[in-house]
Amino acid sequence: MNTTLCLALLFNGIVLGLIWSVIAIGFSLVLGVGQTINFAHGLLFTFGAYFFFSISRNTSFWIAVIAAPILVAIMSLFLEVVLVRRVYGQDPLFGLLITFGFAIAMEEVIRMVWGKAAYSVSTPIFARGQLILGNFVYSRFRILLALFALTILLLVLWFMSKTSFGAIVKAGMFNSEMISALGHNLPLLRTLVFVMGGLLAGLAGVIGAPLWSIKSGMGTDVLMPGFIIALIGGLGSIKGTIIGGLLVGITTSLAVLVIPRFTDIIPYVMLIAVLFYKPKGLYGEVTILGEVRE
């Protein structure tokens, strides 16, 4: 087997896994604290990519890196205040349907504003070039994007495991009623976590924009892997989500060598296998929608 090809696929898998993890963590936080299956999470990712594309073309790369996720966070605040807030505490199906409907409507808006054509982001000058290790050559930009995703993940991990607010968020994923009885403003907590999820989706969009072609349906392509990784890693576990993302990303990428026609089903097979043996996921703390099954 070609070692260079294997290494390239392994690196691709790591990059893919890290981006999927960023998406999955935002999705997982919103699902845990708000008990809402946010089907618009992929759409927020798409907006991150489009905002990044437009802003970087009209201003600078660095302004776009900062402004795009902030704009997506503001958009997610609007989504939470106007729509999602109304379905907290109700049948989770309402949340799923309302965000699904919003996502479909907003995809049309994307097509109206940016058109149907796909766009791509050019590599900035500082990131051009290759990493060369003997026969192995890999894009420097991809490595920088992977490091950016890893930094985001480590920051979220630190925030959730070291700060008091992180403890409240984690506790809220486990028992939101108790959090309220302890004196914490649950509606505000849910809003903040939803916005945090939006910010993470926007950041993932910034990282994904240079890797994939920017088109209105790109969010759908990452939503399912994100959802699957959140379940494989275990809701409530940031560490589990990162490990789950890397496992799925690397396995899917390397599977090209063995079963090239069936790589798309790899995440689903992994999900079934993991949940069969560990219903809470690899490092799961709560089952889906917070129901505790010790």
């Binding site: 506790a171 486990f174 028992n175 010790e294």
Partner: peptide, 9 residues
């Protein structure tokens, strides 16, 4: 909260 330490609880 079973998955938080005593101190974080």
């Amino acid at each position: 909260f079973p998955y938080l330490t005593v101190k974080r609880n």
